[in-house]
Design a binder for these strands. Sequence first.
DNA 1: TACATAAGTTAGACTAATCTAACAAATTAT
DNA 2: ATAATTTGTTAGATTAGTCTAACTTATGTA
Lengths: 223, 223
Amino acid sequence: MMLSYTEENYLKALLKLSFQNEDKPEAGTNEMAAYLGVKPATATDMLKKLKEKELVSYKKYGKILLTETGKKNGIAILRKHRLWETFLYEKLDFSWDEVHEVAEQLEHIQSAKLVDKLEEFLNFPEFDPHGDPIPKANGDMPVIAKTLLSELQAGDVCHVAAVKDTSTLFLQYLEKLQITIGTKIRITEVIDFDGSRYVEISDAAVRNVSMKFAESLFVQKLL
Amino acid sequence: MMLSYTEENYLKALLKLSFQNEDKPEAGTNEMAAYLGVKPATATDMLKKLKEKELVSYKKYGKILLTETGKKNGIAILRKHRLWETFLYEKLDFSWDEVHEVAEQLEHIQSAKLVDKLEEFLNFPEFDPHGDPIPKANGDMPVIAKTLLSELQAGDVCHVAAVKDTSTLFLQYLEKLQITIGTKIRITEVIDFDGSRYVEISDAAVRNVSMKFAESLFVQKLL
DNA sequence: TACATAAGTTAGACTAATCTAACAAATTAT
DNA sequence: ATAATTTGTTAGATTAGTCTAACTTATGTA
């Protein structure tokens, strides 16, 4: 079944929202509309269409849930998006915060061969430049335990695993701090007053980062 | 000025037609509609819009001509198309006849940085996989003398420069004959009866190729 | 030159995706 | 439990790109 550019975007949005609302992989009409930057009325219309095509299951005034087919399609788009981001970052020297916008366009290119060849060309990467897992051709996607920097204690050591907040402002700040995926971070002190913490970056500079910062970064704790 | 996907296609079609009708770089409504696979009425509507935007110059029942701006835009799209074709062919192992369809989609991606970085990544190629020149960022495009294989005499030697016919059938036939851009060809004999000729390919196999074949291949004659 | 044919245009309709404004249902708070 | 608020839907309009059918202009040939 052929999906329009727009339909694909709705499916991807729904998939992303289902990741965000981990406990219940459902979404509301307003939530979805806000995510996509359209009005709720528009979302309602599209939902009817997607339901017609059996890509979402939902009933009037109820919650929205992707069907198996819908999910499969959403994952295929996410796969393309993340592979293209990796391509732009690794091969074309795009910076961390530039890749997303272009990948938003590239993810809609239709060609199964292209995606698979691109994956091969990139040497079957597991993660995209933001540290998010890239789904395989069959839909498999490594689910990795996500620990926030804010959950660690003074003395803990970790590697940066992914960014939770992908805003340009945050990504540029990370760049300024010379923090990238894999960077080693040691918590030297947690300030109870405001939740900020002192961290040692790459065995070098010690910086104070805010609570907000610590809640925007996923890490992998080391023993 | 932001052009829609569709508007871009009309401009590119017009540019292509202007190359085809070398003498007069004009096009007719039906010609254009046929090229794009739409009805003449549709083309007329779009023409009005393009005229409004000063991308084409034309008046009712008259011929269609690209304005300077229209041409500039068309060339930018052609540049993207040919760079992507080169990428697919050289980096992702697409075959000669597979690249076009995907490049038709990729050429509409909006990102000046992407195009320039791609060009750099490909090492500033001069020609695409079909032997057509790739416009530079400033719009320059090498105009090369185009000699058809059919114009050569018995005894002449040449290198394959480009394909005139880009149909899948022709490209696959070339592949079968192991002819690609740069392949050396020597005309051993021209049969007056049907215009077919015997040609020696890469100093090896001698084959008989039809008049139609000889008129579909551009070559560069050697002294 | 006149008429037949080809080329091009217009009018009116359709579809997809969007909007605004008004309404209905569900949830929350008093 | 009822009112206020939030959430979601409907109806009607708009825009871009397309179509068909009918019409108009230009061209070419007898």
